[in-house]
């Protein structure tokens, strides 16, 4: 352990601002990357699922229309 107390750890030998700025900014950027990656993956899946559902509904409606057409004749 290089530091005597938690306060001296936070102080970083007087370089607190620069060290914590670097670590904080890096963590923020990496978390942003991870979350945007997961979000866009979910989004892509949801979009395709929605498209599939819409097509299924369309097919069903068409099938029903065909059935009602054939019964009315």
């Amino acid at each position: 352990m290089q530091f005597d107390s938690f306060a001296s750890f936070l102080d970083m030998g007087g370089y607190a601002f620069y060290v914590w700025l670097s670590f904080g900014a890096s963590a923020a950027l990496i978390l942003l990357l991870i979350f945007s990656t997961l979000f866009s993956h979910k989004n892509a899946r949801a979009n395709i699922a929605r498209q599939v559902k819409r097509e299924q509904r369309l097919q069903q409606a068409q099938a029903q229309a065909n059935v009602s057409e054939s019964t009315s004749q």
Binding site: M1, Q2, F9, M12, G13, Y15, V19, S22, F23
Partner: peptide, 21 residues
């Protein structure tokens, strides 16, 4: 890197930035 690595004799604790830079 933050707790146990020694400080650089020239750059002091700011050297810890090295481990991500």
């Amino acid at each position: 890197a933050l707790l146990f690595a020694p400080a650089d004799y020239q750059q002091g604790e700011s050297f810890r930035i090295f481990y991500i830079h």
